[in-house]
């Protein structure tokens, strides 16, 4: 019952979010700031994690390939596929749910408990539209770019592993990643990432906006929002994979 109420409130929130901004000029300024806070500041962590994950996947694949009939091109191929299909869109989204989700929930939650949201409303500003819409647009615009960054640095990480460990050759790896290049898979990944991005922006915003009780409440909302965002992403991932690829 409580879940149903929350889901209802969530969609009512979305309805208030998607209205025309009071002032486009102000909206643009806020949007640029959100792109920086929610997007640009995540470039480092995304590149870092993907690079190492790519390396690990490549090494793991090579270590598990002791059947001489399977060509070692497979290492590059497997690294590329796992990066594009699951790692970049899903794993990175889960990480961003933690990083960006907690930031969104706690910043909006703090504004709630310090009456800054009331201050906006008293001024006659639709606070949901003002606070949440720029965040949604910022992540929808920027996350596909982050996912593509994750794909490239993951694949690059695999190649670095080849060079650094000598477990497999750089040439074979490069041949492997060029094998069976399928643009629809990239499109699939981007669609998934865009849907996850929407969840990452809106679910924590919902938790932050409805915070109850002081700074403890903000902490609680922030944790809860990360858990829920992750759960929703994992569940959606399952269904989207079935729908899009199945």
């Amino acid at each position: 019952m409580k879940y149903l109420t929350n889901i209802g409130l969530y969609f009512m929130m979305l309805k208030k979010v998607f209205t025309k901004p009071e002032k486009w000029k102000v909206f643009k300024t806020v949007l640029i700031k959100e792109i920086e806070d929610l997007g640009v500041k995540s470039i480092g962590i995304v590149a870092f994690i993907s690079l190492f994950m790519g390396g690990v996947v490549a090494i793991q694949t090579s270590l598990n390939l002791n059947n001489p009939l399977i060509t070692s091109y497979l290492i590059g191929f497997a690294t590329k596929r796992s990066m594009i299909l699951e790692f970049a869109p899903t794993f990175i989204s889960v990480i961003l749910a933690g990083k960006v989700g907690s930031y969104i929930a706690s910043s909006i939650g703090t504004m709630r408990i310090t009456e800054q949201i009331d201050a906006l409303e008293v001024m006659g500003i639709n606070s949901l539209n003002y606070l949440v819409l720029p965040k949604i647009i910022a992540v929808l615009f920027f996350y596909p770019l982050l996912v593509m960054l994750a794909m490239t640095s993951g694949v690059f990480g695999g190649w670095l592993a080849a060079v650094l460990t000598g477990l497999f050759s750089s040439e074979q790896y490069i041949t492997g990643i060029q094998l069976d290049f399928d643009i629809t898979l990239i499109r699939y990944a981007i669609i998934k990432a865009t849907i996850f991005a929407f969840i990452i922006a809106t679910v924590p915003a919902y938790h932050g906006y409805h915070v109850k009780g002081g700074s403890l409440g903000v902490g609680r909302a922030s944790t809860q929002s990360v858990v829920w965002t992750m759960v929703i992403i994992i569940l959606l991932n399952y269904f989207l994979t079935q729908i899009i690829l199945g």
């Binding site: 504004m111 310090t114 009456e115 800054q116 009331d118 201050a119 008293v122």
Partner: peptide, 10 residues
């Protein structure tokens, strides 16, 4: 409106 805790945008 002047709020109990000022409510300035930080």
């Amino acid at each position: 409106m002047v709020f109990q805790g000022s409510a300035l945008f930080d």
